[in-house]
Design a binder for these strands. Structure first.
Length: 512
RNA sequence: CGCGGGGUGGAGCAGCCUGGUAGCUCGCAAGGCUCAUAACCUUGAGGUCGGCGGUUCAAAUCCGUCCCCCGCAACCA
């Protein structure tokens, strides 16, 4: 029976151009998607853009553009980014699409029919840029203006009719859901935050606005636009052809396996979203993972500090795969991490060029010179060979578990460790001194090739382009990569030719 | 008492939940090797785990308290 895996990134809000944080979320999601694919799962990987709301309407107006044209333009930059990052996403959803509109309207109607929504009036201090209301003690005066203490953005007194979602009613069911699904919110530290937030009590949620028009209209009352978050979150269903719940996509992939998001939007995903779904009698997603932020050095990236690292520019200068590797390996997943050109450069030199790239190079050129690129024959494993090869067999389940629990640093550290092991093996076995002992020489080279194959497969989800280059040695193409094959030690067939490859990663000359 | 994150060898981090000789990568020093992208391998130096107090046979790890840094001022992942 087929096994299914549905992973999503947040849909990005295209009020400005993509930055490192968007790249980070997307790259991580792609890593999981690619891993599950080579593990044999049927994967659906979704990303896209969230294009409704007052901010977009306002930004469009400032640019003298129609909101839709404005969205088309900026959404394209995010679409382009997905190409630049070599994402393997199966779909790219935009909330301005008809399929999404239908999906949101259906969800709304269900909630309304189930009496989860009621019409009332909201009055309070509202911040356009935060898209949030603040209470009296959350605002202060500054320069004759009212601003939010929390965000510092300007707030205005707003009094308007609004539809409300009976969020308060779902406090207990949510807590029960968290308890019954202890891994619904990860990492654990953030789960605690969410749980205590819910425990402290939930107010009903205003889920419509009358103050602007750019969005999906409330079906039963066209004066209202549906609240951005109710609109946006539903994208995860829309892409599966919801409301057609009998279609194969929906049946296979819902509930989502993993919503990968930044920690700042955890509340929407871990509280509101499951509440909406429970209220509509739809199964909530299996997991929401709130990752940290990427900082520049010690500080948050900001234009005023001039320490911004544009992902596009980094990729142009250093290449995509090094950036992907860096973000996945150097950042302790779940925590904030930081990136600097300096650290990226030394990561490229030591991990990629010296360690992985050089391993491939030394082994292949040795085989080229001594065996004319034939697969070594008459190999005969002795204890020191099997000991190394068997590590992959022994660790296999742990590696799979580490991915399934999003403990990706364990996985990456394992690979890095095996790179050291492989280089040490080649060093210790000294094939250059074994030219008189053909059988032993062949065995050493055979084992070395196998190590390169296993390591390259493991690195594939992180660096698809570079590892596909390396796997050309063995004529392994993307469609036949099989993670399970790292357990196998006799993959290579005698009489086959292997292929020479060019240098995988060039070292960066440091001039400081 | 605003909220949250954090303080572990020169740098970046893991370990803390479930106490038991302090671990990883980079950097540094010495040696080895020469197949390879001056790459690789070995060994070594370097930390009283922010301070103080407590619990314990035993604390980076648990409890209390204090100090310091960072984000919450947007390019919201």
């Amino acid at each position: 029976m087929d096994k299914f895996f549905y992973i999503t990134t947040p849909i990005y809000y295209p009020s400005a151009k993509p930055h490192m944080g968007h790249a980070y979320s997307s790259i991580l999601a792609d890593f999981f998607a690619r891993f599950k694919r080579i593990q044999g799962y049927k994967v659906f990987f979704l990303t896209g853009t969230d294009e409704h709301g007052q901010k977009i309407q306002k930004a469009a107006k400032e640019n003298g553009m129609d909101p839709k044209d404005f969205c088309d333009k900026i959404s394209k930059t995010f679409f382009d980014l997905s190409k630049t990052l070599n994402l393997s996403n199966d779909d790219f959803i935009r909330t301005t699409e008809l399929r999404h509109k239908k999906s949101v309207e259906t969800l709304w109607n269900i909630l309304e029919k189930k009496k989860e929504i009621y019409l009332s009036k909201y009055s309070g201090w509202y911040s356009i840029s935060d898209e949030a209301f603040y209470s009296d003690d959350e605002i202060e005066d500054k320069d004759n203006k009212k601003i939010s203490k929390i965000s510092g953005s300007q707030v205005d007194w707003v009094e308007e009719e609004s539809f409300f979602f009976k969020l308060s009613k779902w406090q207990k069911p949510l807590l029960k859901y968290y308890e019954e699904n202890p891994n619904f919110i990860l990492p654990e530290s953030r789960k605690n935050e969410v749980v205590s937030f819910v425990k402290s009590g939930l107010n009903d949620l205003s889920i419509s606005r009358k103050s602007f028009t750019w969005g999906i209209k409330v079906p039963s009352n066209k004066d209202h636009v549906i609240y951005v978050w109710l609109d946006a979150l539903t994208n995860y269903l829309s892409a599966l052809n919801y409301p057609d719940t009998s279609n194969i996509h929906y049946k296979s992939y819902w509930p989502a396996s993993l919503h990968l998001i930044g920690k700042d939007i955890l509340r929407f995903h871990a509280v509101y979203w499951p509440a909406f779904l429970l209220a509509a009698n739809i199964e909530p997603p299996k997991r929401v993972y709130g990752h940290g932020w990427i900082l520049s050095g010690e500080e948050k990236m900001s234009k005023s500090r001039g320490n911004i690292l544009d992902p596009i520019e980094i990729i142009q200068n250093y290449g995509l795969d090094p950036l992907r590797y860096y973000l996945i390996k150097e950042v302790s997943f779940g925590n904030d991490g930081n990136i600097s050109k300096d650290k990226l450069e030394s990561c490229i030199n030591s991990d990629l060029a010296n360690n992985y790239g050089n391993l491939c190079q030394r082994v292949i050129s040795f085989i080229e010179k001594n065996l004319k690129l034939n697969v070594p024959e008459n190999y005969n494993f002795i204890a020191q060979d099997t000991k190394i090869l068997k590590i992959y067999e022994d660790e296999f389940n742990k590696l799979v578990d580490s991915i399934d629990s999003q403990n990706i640093n364990y996985y990456v550290n394992f690979v890095q460790n095996q790179l050291f092991v492989a280089n040490k093996y080649f060093n210790d076995q000294e094939p250059w001194k074994k030219k008189g002992d053909k059988d032993r020489l062949n065995t050493i080279l055979y084992v070395s090739l196998e190590l390169i194959r296993k390591i390259s497969i493991m690195l594939y989800p992180i660096m698809p382009n570079s590892t596909l280059k390396a796997l050309k040695i063995f004529n392994i193409t993307e469609n036949i990569i099989d993670f399970n094959s790292i357990k196998n030690h006799e993959y290579l067939k005698i009489n086959e030719k292997i292929n020479k490859i060019s240098i995988l990663f060039k070292k960066i000359e440091k001039n400081d």
